[in-house]
Each structure stands twice: as structure tokens, then as C-alpha cells.
Design a protein around this nucleic acid. Sequence first.
DNA 1: GCGTCCCCCGCAAACGATTGCACTGCCCTG
DNA 2: CAGGGCAGTGCAATCGTTTGCGGGGGACGC
Lengths: 343, 343
Amino acid sequence: MTNPSPPPAPTLRDVAEAAGVHTATASRALNPKTRQQISAETARRVMRAAQALGYHPNSVARSLKTSRSSTVGLVIPDLTNPLFPPIVRGVESVLESDGYNVWIVNTDNDEERERATIESLRSRQVEGLIIATARLDHPLLRQLHEQGVTMVLINRQVEHLPLPAVTGDDATGVAAAVRHLAGLGHTRIAHLSGPLTTSTGRVRSQSFRHAVRDLGLAGDLVVECARWNEEDGAAAMRELLARAGDVTAVVAGNDLIALGCYDVFAERGLSCPGDVSVIGFNDMPFLDKLRPPLTTVAVPHHELGAEAARMLLDCIDEPDRPARSLLLPVSLVVRGSTAPPRA
Amino acid sequence: MTNPSPPPAPTLRDVAEAAGVHTATASRALNPKTRQQISAETARRVMRAAQALGYHPNSVARSLKTSRSSTVGLVIPDLTNPLFPPIVRGVESVLESDGYNVWIVNTDNDEERERATIESLRSRQVEGLIIATARLDHPLLRQLHEQGVTMVLINRQVEHLPLPAVTGDDATGVAAAVRHLAGLGHTRIAHLSGPLTTSTGRVRSQSFRHAVRDLGLAGDLVVECARWNEEDGAAAMRELLARAGDVTAVVAGNDLIALGCYDVFAERGLSCPGDVSVIGFNDMPFLDKLRPPLTTVAVPHHELGAEAARMLLDCIDEPDRPARSLLLPVSLVVRGSTAPPRA
DNA sequence: GCGTCCCCCGCAAACGATTGCACTGCCCTG
DNA sequence: CAGGGCAGTGCAATCGTTTGCGGGGGACGC
């Protein structure tokens, strides 16, 4: 049908020829920044020719020459975690209006994939990276930083590395969660923490200990989950029940871990919030429709993404800018998974 | 600190000089495909030099020369719809093992953004496109097809355009849903369809009409939602209740529309499945934890992604391959949102 | 009428890799 | 011992743009 292989895409050269000018002139005429170097009449002719031929500049050639790309990379650990899509949207919303393209990669929490994908982003000349996969000890990021790669962290931090970062105020969020439970009368409050290799895991866990201690409660009811998902949340909950059957409330490291608790409740015939209250973290979508609706700490993910993007733009424009960190406020959303303990 | 701007990344030329050979030789030595043209000893020397310098090939330069990029674009309408992340993973799982990178873009259901992002993908020489944004009438895709762009559709089709596609067997799924409801004793069964501008919307809607008619039931209880989300699902449900207050069961165009129904039930004090049964479509994550757990039609999204990716690879390897379409089987997952109608 | 300035535009060199072609030796065969 | 073949390497063009530099020519001042 349309098989007789379509004509190759027109190049700047074709446009220049059609307009009867040199490629340099055509290039300048097409670029708004340099257009005033060209007479209005010529510029018009070139633009018309470009239009007529359906010319689209080849970004690859442009990148090669300018070593810029109008592209930034966004490195996500697990796109299926509902917390990330809003971040993506936030990032896109500010970068695209600024003429940048966003290249999203998904590492699946695999260090090798992370290395490979970042490598591939760099080899394509991305101008900066927004990293959501940070671990506290992260040699790869350290190395990138030493190589002068422009990047900002989102949601998580790296230890001993002065990188710009945008995160939620986890400490305050966890404290609010604990206070809420204590206010309901709970005294045996546990925490199912996320991996302590991540700053979110560690900060939330530490804040939990501080918060319970400040209230004069036991601070040792903490179980760590190996990953931020339901399965590991469920495993941790089982371990918790085995270790301390008298807990009446749980602060989960995130919403997925809380959902893991729901699974265990179903499995053991426990009622929530009747037997055990649970609080999640993040306020991912649809929590209000769960059974019971999950009380959680809402983190403004879209804003996190937008702010990280803005920060990255600043870093690109002004490379020697000192790294600053932005902490966005979070808020407790009380729903149906928390109630006073049984008398 | 590390400010004294880091040394520029080493190029092939640097490697060649370090190894005492010409860049052509270095290039061949580093490429497994051409390495046998080079003596083992020289190859080793080059590879060692590359290693020592920390050389990484510049993909931009490579793409410019070869007009290939080892990259494919994945065009998603809305990443926050939980149906898409598994598709992304499926696509990545096969493409990355084949040495390709996946560039995910999110159009937000906006035609202008779609055009812009696809344009930007093309200008970066992507070798193929996987499109999840197809509408039945889609001039842009028609144009791309005429220009010989390699692409495969996923989840949705385009009318009158011979494009390879991988979709779920929507017709069978809807029929199973209707039969399930009829089997429970429902006779007033409605359908809240997705936008009829999409193949999924239309196919599901048509299958619904066929299925109810085959059972001798009314086939006119159909309301169209403008978009595939909760809000529009809720609006459609309200309209349905206004038009036909006696419906006892609803087949929703997808899970989000079904969740919109849940919102209306809450608003009106209706019980599900007591007053109204609901069936969704897709089996997105966490439906089992809803109140009530949503009966739905499970679509193998990960597989859809993987098959689409395989198909795209085939199309890249063999451009003149006739377009084939793959229909993956779906299955009804019965949960708690469906029950016999009140007597 | 001549010198100067400036406006437009063209020339050509990049950017970093790939690859067809040509060249050098060497080995092998007849 | 001559000639063919082949393995290993270098040469140089090329992909499509951008951009510093320089030149031609018109306008203008003196």
C-alpha cells in the first residue's frame, strides 16, 4: 500500500535549498533566538519552506552539536506504586511548560537496572536527573555527583552527600500519626517501618521512636519491612503479632505496608479498627474506598514533583548553586482504620 | 568542593589514542559485532584503555550516524490510571532484555501534548512506538502510518487502519459479565460505557447490547462516560438512576467508572451489592480490598505489554510484515460487588 | 568621491561515532 | 619465486545541526 518506502524526512539542507539560502542561514532563521540576525524577508521565506516541506529538526544532530538535549531523566523505583504517577505528573507539568522533555525510567528497585538506565540517560545527554530511588548509602549517586551530574532527589535523601532534595515532612507526619493514636487511648503502638536503607524508612522509624518515647510509651515495637510493598508489610505484621500480640495500633511505613496489614487481619480474623488500628503513609489514590477506609498521612506528591522539577531547572541554570533541601508539609487524614482500643 | 568542573567525558578518540590505534579500530574493537575484524591483542588493548578511562559511548553521536537509537517510545494517556503501570512493566521486561530502552511519555489525554511528545520521540530517532492512546478516528496515527512509522497499538484500536495491535478480548469479557449478572437473576442490567471514541468503549458497549439482547433483556440501558475516570463514572451513574431507577445491576466500562458508582451509592445511601450490583473491567490493583470488593474482568496487562513489545520488535526487524492483531483472553473475577437482586 | 560601519549572509569547522574502501604485510599455494 | 588471498588497520566521508568568523555591499558621513 504505502509500502514504497516513504521519502526520507527533510533536513535543514532541504529547507535551505528550497529557500535558496545556506543551511547556516536557514538554521538561524528557524531559531527564534537568532532570527533577528536574518532579514525579515529571508526568515519568512525559510520558515515557509520549512512549513511546506514538513521539516522537523533532528534533535539528535542538534544534541550532538550543542551537547544539550532539552531532556531530563526521571528515575523511579517502581511505577506500580501509586505514589509515583502523581510525582511524574508534577515533574512533567513544570518541565514541559519550560520546553523540556522528561524521560521516565523504572528501575524496579534493581541496582543493576538503575545503573544501566542512568548510564543510558547520560549517554543521551540528559541535562539533569530527578532521582526517586535514593538509598542512604548510594555509591552510584556519589559517583555521579563527583562527575558533576546535575540532579535533585525527590522523596528520599542520601547520607553525607550535599544534593538538593524535595521531600515530605515525614517526621512531623509520623508524630501526628502517633499523637492521633495516643489521643484515641492506644498505649501499645507499633511501627512497621520501610527499609532502613532509605531515608524515608529511617526518618519515619526514628520519628516514631521519638514520638512514642515522648509520650512515655514503649519504643521497641518496631519491625522493618524489606521492601515497601504489601507482601513484606504482611510478613512484618505477622512477625509483630508473634512478638507482641497485645498491640492495638500500628503506624505503617507507607500505605502498601498498611494494606499488607489488612491482608493479615483477613487471614487471622482480626477486625480493623476494632482489634487493631492502622495508619498508612502517602495517601495514595482510592484509600477512601477501602474496607475500612485507611487513615493515613497525605503527602503532596504532585507538588513534590513540581518543586523538584523547578529545583532542577535552577540547578541547570546555575550549576554552582548550593544544594538546598525543601521539606513540604504533610497532613494527617483520619478515616476509618483508627478508633479507640477495645476497653 | 568538587567544583573545578569535572573533566569532560572521554571520547572514542581518547580511547584510541590511549591504546595507540585509530578511532576506527577502537570502534570496531569495542563493538562485539565487529570485534573479530580486529586482532585479539589489539582488541584487548582497546578494551582495557576504555575501561581505564571510564569510556562510555555517546549514544547521540551513534544515533546520528546510524540513524538508530535502540529506543522505542511508549505513549500512555494517563499514568495515574493503575491499568498502565503494569503495561509499562510488561513492555520494559521484553524490550530491555533485548537491549532497547523505553521512553515513556504521558499525554494526559491531550491531543496537543500527544502530538508534541510523539514529535519529540521521532526527532530522537526512536525505532518504534507503542501507542496506548488510540482513538477510533485518529488522524495523527494515520499520518504517522503513512509516513512509515513503525508502531503497534496496545489495548485500543484505530478504525480503518491496518496497524498491529494487542488487546484484551473485551467482547468475551463483557459477555461473561452480563451472563454472570443474568445468572444471579438480574433483568434490569445497565452499562456505563467508556468514551465511544475509543475502541474499548465501543466494543464493550456493543458487546453489552448483544449480550443483553441475546438474553432477551432491555438493551437501551446504556450511558456513556466522557472519560474513563471516577468522576465521569459517577456522573453517568447519576444520570442512569435518574433515567431508570429500577436498574439492579451495572456493567461499568472499567474499574474507575465502577468506583464512580461506589461514590454515588455512598451519596445516595444505596447498598452494593444489596441494591445494585456492579462489575468493573481491568482488575486494577487493590480492588479486592475495596468495600465491597469489586467483581471485575481481569485483563492480563503485563502480558499485553510484553506481547506488544514482542510484536514491535518483529515489526522493526521485518518492516513489511503484515499487521496482525492479538487478542488476549480475559477472565471474570467474582468478588463481593455482585449478588442476586432483592426479591 | 572615498572611507567606515553595519547588516546579512555564506564558509567551514566542529560534535563523536560508524563504516566502505584502500592499503600493508604476511602466509600460502602452485 | 611470483602472485593471490586474507587478516588487520588506517583514511576519510558521513550523519544533520550549530556557530565563530569573515566578506560583500549598501548606506551614510565628511
